[in-house]
Nucleic acid binder design. Structure first.
Lengths: 150, 150
DNA sequence: CGTTAATACTTGCACACGCAAATACAAAGC
DNA sequence: GCTTTGTATTTGCGTGTGCAAGTATTAACG
């Protein structure tokens, strides 16, 4: 087996590790957020993204990118949150195709309730993962991550 | 904002980065494998796991762990692959609750067809991701990943 | 041994997702 | 201005998933 073949194996192994860590974190967050505030991880992601816009609106398309979801899934996700009165749709005047979404007071309140649970769970899971030799290198690399454009 | 708060933000940011990279890789693999051999990523994962066992059987439970899927999803996943004659169920004698799965010749052939596509896609996407400043640190860390126990 | 608890897998059900088509609006070309 | 092309969002439909309950088999206990 030559050097090129080794590189292929290393990449495949790295991808399996990445997937394992991602799955671990996501399932723990899912459980914690579901049990405490009845939010899924994507739903929390929406509230978090809207909150980080700090008073600014967000288009459906931006939400779709932030959640890595299809347009149709984004529509229904916003529907669910709107039905629970956690956010509102706002038809925007300058481009009447576009729809902006905004957190309601209830949405902000629930987000502020969910956030510490989210953060504590993340801290716990990452600490746990850092103890596993195969996951540790990837966990350490997360510290070096740089903000992604919203 | 104190040191502790910064750490929380860094972890949250790292998690968003991890999720973004994971989503990017998965969607590209999904597209490439779906178009060429009509396999989803989880389906490929099963064939790959079985192949890496090199002739050995695998229990449903092991498959569930390898794919990060629930038992019920694993059952139906194996059903789909069995319907396509890519693997076979083998009732094991020593514990008649357990069920082993094994690649068929057709399954191995399809895997060998899929593998180069999988590997090339992975290489391309990782190279692409390494060019984005926010993803690069995590991409680099994958090289350091150590094999996970099957 | 016979009963009870635990394990391995499967099925019923509800739900979230992606794709493709439909709708509504904006921008470009002539 | 009117048509054509492109963009933003929503709906119809099929499919994969998790949870909880069901079945089969093994292990533990008295």
């Amino acid at each position: 087996m030559g050097i090129a073949d080794d590189a292929v194996e290393v990449r495949a192994q790295g991808w399996r590790t990445l997937a394992a860590l991602h799955g671990l974190i996501e399932s723990e967050l899912e459980r914690a957020l579901g049990a405490s505030v009845d939010l899924s991880v994507v739903e929390y992601t929406v509230l978090d993204a809207l909150n980080r816009q700090d008073g600014w609106h967000m288009r459906m398309q931006q939400l779709a990118r932030a959640t890595a979801l299809s347009p149709s899934a984004t529509t229904r996700l916003v529907n669910r949150l709107e039905d629970r009165a956690l956010l509102t749709r706002i038809l925007c005047a300058d481009d009447r195709r576009g729809i902006y979404t905004e957190l309601t007071a209830a949405g902000l309140a629930l987000y502020e309730q969910a956030r510490p649970i989210h953060d504590e769970t993340l801290e716990r899971v990452l600490a746990e993962a850092a103890g596993q030799p195969e996951l540790a290198p990837v966990v350490d690399a997360l510290h070096a991550a740089v903000p992604v454009a919203g």
